[in-house]
Amino acid sequence: MRIALIAHDRKKEEMVQLATAYEAILQQHKLYATGTTGTRIMESTSLEITRFLSGPLGGDQQIGAMVARNEMDLIIFLRDPLTSQPHEPDIIALLRLCDVHRIPFATNMGTAEILLKALERGELAWRDIVHEEQN
């Protein structure tokens, strides 16, 4: 599975905590992240992450391009709904793409944990079928 990790500035520490807590699950998958978020996770864990540009420079759009090509299976975008800054990635376009392409999308710690536990139990294996249909 290919998993993208994105976090608004005030949620980056929470993303690091999530990645640390679920490192054993995440290490079994191909991980992608926006620049700063990916760096913070790699500094705190042994996870290997393909990093894109930081969010303000278009990293979220690079992930969106992968979604449009059906090359992403799960996105965790921890957003700050109360104090997000103008320079931070916009969630709406990415969320719309995920809805169009049936990509699971978590915006908070609770949903992220549920999806990661489902991933561990093999309950997201239907994504493999989506990839087979595409070929």
Rank of each mutant, 00 (worst) to 15 (best):
R96H: 13
P104A: 06
H131T: 13
L18I: 09
T83Q: 13
E13F: 01
R69G: 11
T20I: 06
I75M: 13
M1D: 10
Q17M: 14
M109F: 04
I3Y: 08
D9F: 04
R96V: 12
A7R: 04
Q27R: 15
A106P: 12
L82S: 06
L47C: 12
L47N: 10
S46Q: 14
L115Y: 15
M15Y: 01
T83R: 12
L95Y: 14
M15K: 03
L47P: 09
T39H: 08
L74P: 12
A125I: 09
A93H: 09
E23V: 07
P86H: 07
E48P: 01
E88G: 05
E71T: 07
L94M: 11
M15G: 02
L82D: 13
N135W: 06
E133F: 10
T45G: 08
I91W: 06
E14H: 01
L124H: 02
A68G: 11
P56Q: 06
T107Y: 00
A19N: 07
A4W: 07
S44K: 15
C98E: 09
D99I: 08
T45L: 07
M66D: 01
T39A: 07
A19L: 05
F52I: 02
F77S: 04
Y22A: 04
A24C: 00
V100L: 11
R2Q: 12
L18W: 07
P104V: 04
S54N: 12
K11E: 13
D90R: 13
A4G: 12
T107R: 03
A24P: 05
D90K: 14
N108E: 14
T34S: 10
I75Y: 08
P89G: 00
T107Q: 13
Y32G: 02
G64L: 09
I3E: 01
L95H: 13
Y22W: 10
E43W: 06
R51T: 03
A106K: 06
L78G: 09
L95D: 09
G58R: 08
Q61H: 05
S84L: 02
R121G: 00
